[in-house]
Design a binder for these strands. Structure first.
Lengths: 103, 103
DNA sequence: ATAAACTAGTTTGTAACACAAACCGATAAA
DNA sequence: TTTATCGGTTTGTGTTACAAACTAGTTTAT
């Protein structure tokens, strides 16, 4: 049986934050890509806050950011990357295993 | 189906931290109470760091702290409270349900 | 007996981080 | 030509995590 801390240490630190976890689970469940304003409403974040969290998630390669123009206006959309999906899955797996104590 | 963010918002914020999560899963699995030095070794934390995290967990009523003397030396032990157990269980439940998307 | 070193923590100063206010560049309306 | 609005980003501030320094006492060495 591995030590609890070793399992916890495999959790991506970016996911240990309420806002970013919210962004990720929204994206991981989404069928299409999700835009900035949707996330603002869904997660009840301010624009600045959302912007900087998404930057970090992008740097960590957990999400992919796409910038386009729609009706001449900028539009930023977000998708979960494969790594993002993996990290979320791992997150859940580690917590489960650590609590069930069977690893 | 409830919104992902509503589920995430029920997670106790004290648990969204690697060190504190480590402390809690160590305690929640423990048969007997766990002492300060055990946690230092198990979680690879500095003394100051452990001390302050435990203070917060105690304030949040997630753990119970007991101070005694053994061989004239101070000895501090920690146990998980019922609330602590509940919060950990809820944590896992919320993440699971949000990922399985069935709530 | 005194000093030095060790034990078991706590307090405090700092560096990193989350957050919202202020800002920016562009479009649309008055 | 202002004035407002949209879709964000940057910046300043308050919180937080962290380790270094400190406290209080015990044991060992001199």
């Amino acid at each position: 049986m591995k030590k609890a801390i070793d399992l916890i240490n495999t959790i991506n630190p970016l996911l240990l934050d309420r806002a970013r976890l919210g962004i990720m689970v929204t994206l991981v469940n989404a069928k299409e890509s999700i835009d900035f304003n949707f996330l603002i409403d869904a997660l009840d974040l301010t624009k600045g806050n959302l912007s900087s969290h998404c930057q970090k998630l992008e740097e960590g390669q957990l999400i992919k950011v796409t910038k386009t123009f729609v009706d001449k206006k900028p539009k930023t959309t977000y998708e979960c990357t494969n790594l993002g999906r993996q990290e979320i899955k791992n997150y859940l797996k580690q917590i489960e295993s650590v609590l069930k104590n069977n690893n």
